[in-house]
């Protein structure tokens, strides 16, 4: 590999709101690239060898858990599965995801937002009988194709990239956002959820819901799990327009 051992230049947003007097700034770090290096590996290298105070979140380091969303050279993405070799000039700028409460440096509180979203869309099966089900009996049969489609919508990892890419969210802080739409689409499709369209409308049917969406589709462009935002948002809009 020709670029082996080149020097990468990271420009990283630094700010610790916990520390009195600290101010937001960009700091440059240099790291010698290794083969197969990801941003996860590089950031740990910086933390261990240059600045132990640098904050960021990684958990699975395999593109599965959704903790490591950050803005990488302008685009929100999962940092753990971004190879440094992708950046030809070796310049990498890292910013925390906008739209979330900042914990420090590259770490943001997506968890708090996502729990709020789940509570708001009531992200669970609504069926008064779900807890009375006799689990000794055969389970309720489900159409194999529908279950596959539900899974497609459930692949969201709550990384928050779609939210950072959404212009509407920036203007309307209470905008439900793509992640919420996808969650609702998932439950709307699931025959086990007994909610009616009217009930979904209660959650979705205003300008903080699907009617506020400008369908610019930043969400779909940046979703690392390739969720079908466009078709689902359009579907929800049509459905909700029929309710009233």
């Amino acid at each position: 590999m020709s670029d082996e051992g080149r020097i990468l230049r990271f420009q990283i947003f630094r700010y610790n709101p916990q520390k009195k007097g600290d101010k937001p700034r960009m700091v440059t770090y240099e790291v010698t690239e290794a083969p197969g290096m990801t941003i996860f590996i590089a950031l740990n290298d910086i933390r261990e060898n240059q600045d132990p105070s640098l904050q960021f979140d990684f958990i699975c380091r395999a593109g599965i858990c959704g903790s490591c969303g950050m803005v990488i050279n302008g685009a929100p993405d999962l940092a753990c599965r971004t190879l440094t070799s992708k950046f030809e000039d070796g310049e990498i700028t890292l910013l925390p995801l906008p739209g979330f409460e900042l914990i420090g440096d590259l770490s943001v509180n997506t968890g708090k937002f996502m729990r709020g979203m789940s509570e708001r869309v009531e992200s669970w099966i609504h069926d008064p009988d779900a807890d009375k089900v006799n689990y000794n009996e055969l389970e309720e049969r489900m159409d194999p194709d529908i279950m596959e489609e539900v899974y497609e919508l459930e692949r969201c990892v709550e990384c928050g990239c779609c939210i950072s890419a959404c212009a509407t969210k920036r203007m309307r802080p209470d905008f439900l956002s793509a992640v919420g739409f996808m969650r609702l689409a998932r439950f709307h499709l699931d025959p086990r959820d007994k909610r009616t369209d009217e009930e979904f409308y209660e959650i979705l049917g205003d300008d903080d819901g699907v009617f506020g969406c400008m369908t610019l589709l930043g969400c779909e462009d940046y979703c690392p799990k390739d969720l079908p935002h466009q078709t689902q948002i359009a579907f929800l809009r049509r459905k909700m327009a029929l309710v009233k």
Binding site: A130, D131, E140, M142, P144, D193
Partner: peptide, 16 residues
């Protein structure tokens, strides 16, 4: 078997 059936009622889209 009980646990998996309960999870099915709670929404896991098990492959069928």
């Amino acid at each position: 078997p009980k646990a998996i059936r309960q999870l099915s009622a709670w929404g896991v889209p098990w492959s069928r």
